[in-house]
């Protein structure tokens, strides 16, 4: 220990900026979490505000609205895991089979592009594309299938579906790149051996490619589980409208409304803390499960 510290003293020094970043911006703000147990008054500051015990948590668990919001958050994330999470795996598998290098690069870039566009813009595009009068989707529905225009964005049935599809659109490209990178690392000898043994494409994918990226899938899944209680504020805020609050309000919009617009900092902090603790538990659990399944897990 001592020896390695002495030997690698420069390496440890290089580590300092990164460490201090985390201490300063990720750990120090945790101090603010005590707000959840206080009655915050803006002029008294965090420490001098009076203690409130578990009052805010009590209110949280007795707030009917909160359960609706928790349900929405969990449902949207469930759709996310079931539909959005596998999308980049499928795309990466498809791309992996492409032999035309320039075409592969082109498709990859096109898929990746929405990742750079903010939800303000993407939300506007979604609304326009799905407009009953001028949107291309309804146009096709009417022309090809003779279906009456549907006002997707104000329907409590369609909204979660649109939301999930738009998530795929925005995030799939990024995941595809990660999986493609993992696939590139698979030993080509394995494929050769499989071909000699007479395995077709499907067999190769099943027995070589998928096992080859298992570790990556596991890690991304764990990270995804950590976000189970968290639906991005921007995406919801830019896609929601007054007709679908009941299915689109999630914890982040709830905290925004109560904490920032309603100025009830302590209560909003309690919500955030609750959300964080559940997220941590989920990550730990899934990490354990994945380790039991023989993968490495996060730690």
């Amino acid at each position: 220990m001592k020896v390695s510290l002495k030997r690698d003293v420069w390496l440890y020094l290089f580590l300092l900026p990164g460490l201090s970043f985390f201490l300063l911006f990720k750990y120090a703000p945790l101090y603010g979490e005590i707000l959840a147990f206080k009655d915050f008054r803006i002029v008294d500051g965090i420490w001098n505000s009076p203690w409130a015990g578990f009052k805010h948590f009590d209110r949280l668990f007795h707030d009917e609205e909160f359960w609706t919001i928790l349900r929405n958050t969990l449902l949207l994330n469930l759709y996310n895991i079931v539909f959005v999470f596998p999308a980049p795996i499928v795309l990466a598998l498809l791309l992996n089979e492409l032999r035309l290098a320039w075409y592969k690069r082109l498709v990859q870039n096109l898929l990746y592009l929405p990742n750079f566009i903010s939800w303000v813009v993407l939300g506007g595009i979604v609304v326009t594309v799905l407009s009953p009068s001028t949107g291309v989707v309804n146009h096709i529905l009417a022309r090809v299938f003779g279906i009456d225009p549907v006002y997707f964005m104000v329907s409590t049935f369609w909204w979660p579906i649109v939301f999930t599809l738009s998530s795929i659109w925005q995030t799939a490209g990024w995941g595809t790149i990660l999986y493609s990178a993992a696939m590139a690392g698979i030993d080509p000898g394995l494929y050769e051996a499989a071909r000699i043994d007479g395995a077709g494409k499907a067999r190769q994918i099943w027995h070589i490619t998928l096992p080859g990226i298992r570790g990556t899938i596991a890690i991304l899944l764990i990270l995804q589980m950590g976000r189970m209680m968290d639906v991005g504020f921007e995406q919801v805020y830019n896609m929601q409208n007054a007709a679908v609050y009941s299915v689109s309000d999630v914890i982040s919009t709830y905290v925004y409304r109560i904490g920032l617009q309603g100025a009830q900092y302590s209560f909003a902090t309690a919500v955030g803390l609750f959300q964080g603790v559940i997220g941590l538990i989920l990550v730990l659990t899934v990490n354990q499960i994945i380790k039991k399944m023989g993968e490495d897990g996060l730690w």
Binding site: E65, V154, A242, A243, Y245, D249
Partner: peptide
């Protein structure tokens, strides 16, 4: 009242909108 005004707003806005359309 001010504490719940914005929460209440989200509720009545949704109800009024749903009723209109």
């Amino acid at each position: 009242y001010t504490d719940i005004a914005s929460q209440f707003k989200a509720k009545w806005e949704e109800i009024a909108t749903r009723t209109t359309i």
